[in-house]
Simulated assay, not measured.
Amino acid sequence: MILVFGQSGQVARELALLADVRCLGRDDVDLEYPLNCAEAIAIHQPAAVINAAAFTNVDGAETEASRAHLVNAHAPEAMAQACADLGIPFVSISTDYVFDGAGDAPWREGDTPAPVNAYGRSKLAGEVAIAQVGGTWAVLRTSWVVSAHGNNFVKTMLRLGAERDALTIVADQIGGLTPARDIARACHHMAQSLISEPNKGGIYHFSGSPNASWADVARATFETADLTCTVTDIPSSDYPTPALRPLNSRLDCYKIKKTFGIKRPDWRKGIADIVKELA
C-alpha cells in the first residue's frame, strides 16, 4: 500500500483513483503538526509514501509565511525522516516557483534555485530538508496544475469565458500546464520504482507540453469548450498580485524520461479531458 498525504487537493484526488493507495486528509492528519505525519506513517506501515498535500495559496503565503513554511517544509521533513527510519521510499511534490524565472531556457534539476516569493521559499526549504534527511527520496517539481477539481486556471477560464465576450490575460509568463492526473501517475510510478530501485532517487522535473503562456492556455481552453471569448495579451505588470510570479517557468524534463520513462503530457489533451469530465 502507498500512503498519500492529501485528499481534497487536485493531485491527491487523482491519486485516490489509482490501485493500492490510501489517502489521508486534514481530518486524519493536520500538516501543521509535523510529528503527527510521522506517527501516521508508523501506524500504517506503507510500502511507500507520497506527499501530495501543501499550503498552495501563493498570494496567501506572503502574509502567512510561517504557516506555509510549517506545512511545506517541516511536515515533509517529518515524513521523510519517518520513511528513512522505516527504509521506505518518499516522494514529495514541489514547484517551478523555486526558481526566479530569469531567462528563457528550461530549468534543469541542477540549476540554482532562487525563489521570488514566500511560497517558493517554503517549498525550497522542504526540498532541502528532505535531501538532508536522506534515505530513499524523490522530489517532483511541477508547474501550473489543472484538473476538473478544485480551483485552477482552466476552470476559471471556463467560467469567465461563458460569462464574458473578452478577457485580458497575462502573456509574458511561460511554462508547462500540467494535468493533475499525469502528476499523480508520475508520482505513483516513481514511488513503486523506488521500492526496488532506490538508486533512482533525487530531484526531477515534470510539466506539460508544449510550453505556452497563460494567454495561450486561455485561447486553447475557449477553443476546446467552443466558447467565443476574445483574449488580449497583457504583461504581468498590468496584473499585479501580492506574490511575484516567475516569468520563465519552463522545466527541462529529460531526466525523468531517461530515468523512469515518463514523458511530458500534452496539456491540450488534458484540457479536453477536463471539459469532458465537467460536462
Results as ranks from 00 to 15, higher is better:
L167Q: 10
L278G: 06
A184Q: 02
I203L: 11
G87I: 01
A180R: 08
D233P: 05
N57S: 14
T56M: 11
D238L: 14
R250P: 01
A129L: 07
P246E: 00
A75S: 03
D20Q: 12
A53F: 01
R108S: 14
F5L: 13
D252Q: 06
F55G: 09
D96G: 10
I271W: 00
A82R: 08
R141Y: 05
A212E: 09
I169L: 12
A114L: 14
D172C: 10
G120H: 03
T221Y: 03
V275M: 04
P89R: 10
E62W: 07
I174C: 10
W107A: 15
A212N: 08
W144C: 08
P76Q: 01
L24N: 05
L140S: 11
Y254I: 14
T178N: 07
I234Y: 01
D20I: 13
N211E: 05
Q7M: 14
Y204P: 09
K276W: 04
L251G: 00
I195R: 14
A114P: 06
E163R: 15
Y97G: 04
I169C: 13
V4W: 00
S122P: 04
G120T: 03
L70E: 00
G135I: 08
R22T: 15
F55I: 04
V58F: 09
I2P: 00
A218V: 05
M190E: 07
D28M: 13
P34K: 07
C253R: 11
A220F: 06
M79C: 12
N72C: 04
